[in-house]
Nucleic acid binder design. Structure first.
Lengths: 366, 366
DNA sequence: GTGAAAGCGCTAACAT
DNA sequence: ATGTTAGCGCTTTCAC
């Protein structure tokens, strides 16, 4: 079933190296005539190169290792999709390992990838925070995608959290709110600090007074948002709008408002952060700031391929920005019910609509 | 940085093959003495095998190719996680390709994986429906994970849809409902047919009359569920409970009920199917039947490894069953608000709680 | 422009 | 129980 280079060479009446040069588009000079002949023979005989043999010789595998926190986490799949799309276009494969935030597993993963001679590594949320910690574990280029923590600009794709928080806060201010509360994540997270900065910057720029009691801290979960919402509702001068540092806490706060007999957005407007899928399903659907996960993935793959091709080890990274998605929870649009399509099936839809068909469901054969 | 087998052999004073036999736990007889010495030397010198060289020689890569519909689809990540957990425990790696339901991409992917000499393939929702279509594209073993369509039992992991639909229907019947409507998916999908069968079987077994007008068809989306819900509400003798063939349509139906001024579950109870993440976030949280995606992934990996190890090409597959998750939409439990934890972060939680720490957030260094 | 020789690092057969 | 020989399939010198 499998035909090898030597057979192509023999069939074309040339030596093996010549056949190799023709089939790899080598820059080595050769007559257009023999090249064509070799390619024709290879095509006819259905030649497929043994990539393992090639890798052993060239020490390149065209494979990138992806060490991710956990593929079940909400933003990992879109980041992976972004990475894979860029890699595939350049002829690269990827292999994925879940680290589960375990530094031992992560180190083993780096070692395994070394042994398989991958060409580079992308860390998506790593236990490691800086390049120097990785540098002595592998001599391959690597890149970080850090959403929650990061402490370096080199080789790192990160989110402009300040910008995102300003988008959210500014949107509420633009709707006329000047009593805007903020439900933050836990204090010690970089993302929390940055989003708080953005919230305060935007208020300051608009000359809206900052009230410390308007800043509550949640645990990123719906329950924490609910509790924070109750606290805010209990204030003597309660806010007319709430920006929550993620959609889960936004949903929790919204339910606290509803349970207090108030309405969103009429009594208190809500804006979330992340654009989780459920944000469009709950009622009212939550206005939010996207986390541009696919773009982060794409940028990380581009950066890594750049490092590989330039034979560099370090390069300044990229900061990406989310955008505002206006839904019903902020009062900027009318309340009529709009169902948005399932994001996850867009590929399926595009395919089906392109072809106008889907494979028939055959009868059971057994 | 990299030390090779020949250096270990020299340092231990043995030949290269002897060193190889010691380090690969070969069954070839050898003195425990030299084996220990070689292992000690290898450990001391930090020997790491070049897996590419080994693969070229053995024609095994310990890598499985995963061709998935689209990693962004809701059930793909948990299926992948299940696969990866089983593979990792057996020392296997995986490489993932998105087919986007495109038969051309899928065929290219099979070819690419062949060239990389992977040991087997798992198709997660393939354009191909039967083994024979794949058989002439690769000589490696392969397995299907088919959730929506399938037409064979061999090499296929599938869901017992009839069982799941009976769980949902039976739960509503058990709560005293005898006017239970069913919002199905599009008619021509295997999953739709099977779930309808389960619904009817359960009604029949409980001697609950079947009313054709109680069966509506949606498009798997919230909008379709909403429309179907309106239709059911408009019936002269309307149902007191609705089972929807997925959670999105269940949510849509629930909103139709709310918009008609009725309540869930007091006026009309709802059960969904899939256990999508949003089912626990909407209010009331949706009672549903899980799609056991991780288990499907695990079973598919086990089946494939079995085929590889037994050098077989065909084996009967496995049918997995979901289970009922009771929440607020069916009326079986009281209405108090319960926030469930984020599924995706459980690994992170377990880690954090195990260690009691999370890496400190350092100050920005640049 | 083409071919001959060498070798990537490892393991499997066959000696002894 | 150990070593010698061979070779997986390919690409890269280096001759010519």
């Amino acid at each position: 079933m499998t035909v090898k280079l030597s057979e192509i060479a023999k069939a074309a009446g040339v030596s093996v190296p010549t056949a190799s040069r023709a089939l790899t588009n080598s820059s080595h000079p050769m007559s257009a005539d023999t090249r064509e002949r070799i390619l024709a023979v290879a095509r006819e005989m259905g030649y497929q190169p043994n990539l393992i043999a090639r890798s052993l010789r060239t020490d390149r595998t065209n494979t990138i290792g992806l060490i991710v926190e956990n593929i079940l986490s909400p933003f990992i799949p879109p980041i992976l999709r972004g990475i894979q799309d860029v890699l595939r276009a350049e002829g690269y494969f990827s292999t994925i390992i879940n680290s589960d935030w375990d530094p031992v597993i992560e180190s083993e993963a780096i070692n395994d990838l070394n042994n398989r001679k991958i060409d580079g590594i992308i860390f998506v949320e790593s236990w490691h925070r800086s390049s120097k910690e990785i540098r002595d574990k592998t001599d391959k280029p690597f890149v970080f995608v850090h959403r929650l923590f990061h402490n370096q600009l080199e080789n790192t794709i990160r989110v402009d959290e300040i910008y995102g928080a300003r988008l959210a806060t500014g949107h509420l201010a633009g709707l006329g709110h000047c009593k805007i509360a903020y439900i933050n994540g836990p204090k010690d997270w970089d993302a929390s600090k940055k989003r708080l900065q953005g919230y305060r910057q935007e208020l300051a720029e608009r000359n809206i007074p900052f009230y410390p009691e308007f800043v509550q801290h949640g645990d990123w979960e719906a329950g924490g948002g609910y509790a924070a919402g109750q606290t805010l509702l209990g204030l003597p001068d309660r806010p007319t709008a709430i920006f929550a540092a993620n959609d889960l806490m936004a949903a929790g706060a919204m339910y606290a408002i509803q349970d207090a007999g108030l309405r969103t957005p009429q009594d208190i407007a809500i804006v979330g952060y992340d654009d989780r899928y459920f944000a469009r399903i709950v009622r009212p659907a939550i206005t939010t700031v996207t986390l541009p996960a696919e773009e982060m993935g794409q940028e990380s793959a581009r950066l890594l391929l750049h490092l590989i091709q330039q034979q560099k080890t370090t390069e300044i990274g990229v900061e990406v920005r989310g955008k505002l998605i206006v839904r019903q929870s902020c009062g900027a649009v009318d309340q009529k019910l709009v169902f948005e399509d399932e994001q996850g099936s867009r590929a399926w839809r595009s395919k089906r609509s392109r072809e106008g068909v889907f494979p028939d469901s055959e009868e059971e054969t057994t």
